[in-house]
């Protein structure tokens, strides 16, 4: 796995407050890395630091496996916080200006305008755009110069449901067809869950956990809940059907990982052994609940 971004004990302090606290993060080529954290957890500060907008207080980071020299940074597109736009200029003029910095072909501009749904804005000044349109233009600027890595901070802020879907499809298209790696933060955990391949959870500046989508699915996999009259006896019956370490016992309830054994078989065995089963339900954990639990709420 080729790392696109790797941070080593990266720390950013503002006076006495530590916004990013010794973060070791790795984003590999092709990832759509969902960055999750509460407001003020340090997501934006970390993004700003790896984009050199903020100067690190401690630690360092590598880009594409090397020290972050300007030539490597030019391979990154970004939209952090509110989009940086020249409000008195049209969408096209904004893109044309930034195409100089991104060393992009000016012909790319019309293509990008179409991609972000701003092809028909003509001479309308960016200052008169809606929040969603400004957000799209910000994404357009990030796309200039065919970046290999795009950092998006709350990219669907202010977008309507159709706009959110369009941005989601655009990210998936760019990731799958062009191999672009993404680092995306969003408060819309469900939305992030639809596109991210890896997740990083940050709380109070510390990276609490990094996990892949399959790992998340595994952790949020459903459980079978049996409410029985004799849990001890039931436990001894279940030990023959599932890994005893995975079986949880909460009072009269036994929780067995879904898929360990067919629910009908477990139920039959329990009944055959003289255990009375009063309730049998399949419980599934929501991703959102998992993240909230990890965020420490």
């Amino acid at each position: 796995m080729e790392p696109v971004l790797q941070t080593y004990e990266l720390t950013k302090r503002f006076g006495g407050r530590t916004a990013v606290d010794h973060v070791n993060m790795q984003i590999n080529r092709g990832d759509i890395y969902g960055f999750i954290g509460r407001n003020g957890a340090g997501k934006t500060t970390l993004m700003r630091t790896v984009l050199s907008m903020a100067l690190p207080s401690e630690g360092r980071f590598d880009l594409f496996g090397q020290k972050p020299v300007p030539a490597l940074q030019r391979r990154i597109g970004s939209l952090v916080e509110t989009p940086g736009l020249y409000n008195k200029c049209s969408a096209k003029e904004n893109l044309l200006r930034f195409s100089i910095l991104a060393e992009a072909d000016p012909r790319e501009v019309d293509e990008i305008l179409g991609m972000v749904g701003l092809a028909n804005t003509g001479k309308k000044k960016a200052g008169h755009f809606s929040l969603g349109m400004k957000q799209r233009l910000g994404i357009g600027i990030a796309l200039l110069g065919h970046p290999e890595f795009i950092v998006l901070d709350e990219p669907v802020n202010g977008l309507d449901p159709a706009g959110i879907q369009e941005v989601r499809n655009l990210i998936l298209f760019l990731n799958r067809e062009h191999g672009i790696t993404f680092l995306i933060s969003s408060h819309l955990l469900d939305e992030l869950g639809k596109i991210a391949t890896r997740f990083g959870i940050i709380s109070e500046g510390r990276l609490v956990e990094e996990l892949t989508m399959p790992e998340l699915q595994e952790r949020c996999a459903g459980k079978l809940r049996f409410v029985v009259d004799d849990p001890e006896k039931a436990l001894s019956v279940l030990e023959g059907l599932a890994d005893p370490e995975q079986i949880e016992c909460k009072g009269n309830a036994l929780l067995v990982p879904d898929g360990a054994a067919p629910s009908a078989l477990i139920n039959r065995r329990l009944v055959e052994s003289g255990v009375e089963v009063s309730t049998l339900v399949r419980e599934t954990a929501e991703w959102e609940d998992y993240f909230i639990e990890r965020l420490g709420r």
Binding site: M53, P70, R74, G84, L85, F98, L101, A102, I141
Partner: peptide, 12 residues
């Protein structure tokens, strides 16, 4: 206009 971050973010 917060465009400074676009410039620095592009490695300048």
């Amino acid at each position: 206009s917060k465009t400074a971050k676009n410039i620095i973010g592009r490695g300048y």
